[in-house]
Simulated scan of single mutants.
Amino acid sequence: MRIIGAMENTTAPAYRSFVAVGDSFTEGMCDELHPDGSYRGWADLVAARLAAATPGFRYANLAVRGKLIGQICDEQVGVAAAMGAELVTLAGGLNDVLRPGCDVAEVSARLGDAAEKLAAGARRVVLFTSADPSRRLRGSARLLPAIVRMKEFVAELARQRPEFVVVDLFSAPCFDDPRLWAEDRLHLSPEGHRRVAEAVLEALGAPAGFDWRAPLSAAPAQRWAARRRSDLRWVRIHLGPWVVRRLTGRSSGDGRAPKRAELAAYEG
């Protein structure tokens, strides 16, 4: 087993094809936008580096925001497995954990089944542990037991097959910094995506170009009134609509197609 937690490089390992599977984390929510209006995200950054190193490289990104682990398994895993890519990344389950009454054992079982199916035809399957929200978000401590159980499950899963590697975001204190997160406090900022991309490449054996775990330089202290205004804006613009979607059974990904549904040449 390899559990990775460390460093951008100028070279990348030779993978001829890559499929990314998951939810908003992998879709690239809140990163910079491509000309077509889709988000870039860490997976696209990884694909760009792999494409630069390997002529004929192909890439698909099946991830869709808001998807639960069952939806990822039912809608993406079979499609990804049929593509036969050499590299697959799989991230999911956090949307389930955010919901009250989450059955962590069931979520873990579905994630494990997905990983096994993807590993049957891939050289490498990259898994993730979630960053610890309790160190940066008030009121998120209730999520921690489930996140820790998922973290332990992923680590145990990786011990069972040499094809699995784990990118350990949970143990990286840099992700406690709000600047690695978007205004909604749930999705990564561009800097957060850049660091996750580097972590994935380092997990694949690429030499380090920078230490993605390193803390950011100190930020100016924010006054109490500014913090309260920021909190109120977050509740109004982000938390409130999220709660409404949960209460009405809707998802931000309803009716949304993957941004790269075909395994095709990556041109940036």
Rank of each mutant, 00 (worst) to 15 (best):
N9M: 03
T11W: 02
A12S: 05
A12Q: 01
A12P: 01
Y15P: 00
S17H: 02
A20D: 11
L33W: 00
H34C: 10
S38H: 15
W42G: 04
A43E: 10
D44V: 03
V46C: 06
G56I: 08
R58S: 09
Y59I: 07
V64W: 11
G70W: 02
A81D: 11
A81F: 12
M83E: 01
A85G: 08
L87Q: 04
L87N: 06
L87C: 00
V88K: 12
L94H: 06
N95F: 00
R99T: 07
C102P: 04
C102S: 00
D103N: 05
S108Y: 05
L111V: 11
A115R: 12
E116A: 15
L118I: 01
L118R: 11
A119N: 07
A122Q: 11
R123T: 01
R123M: 00
R135E: 07
L137F: 05
I147A: 11
V148A: 14
R149E: 15
E152V: 14
V154E: 14
L157W: 09
Q160E: 15
V166Q: 13
L169A: 08
D176E: 09
R179W: 02
S189H: 03
E191S: 07
E191V: 03
H193G: 05
A199R: 10
G205V: 00
A206E: 01
A208Y: 03
A218M: 04
P220T: 00
A221D: 06
R229Y: 00
S230Q: 10
V235W: 14
R236K: 08
L239R: 10
W242G: 10
V243Y: 04
K259N: 12
L263M: 09
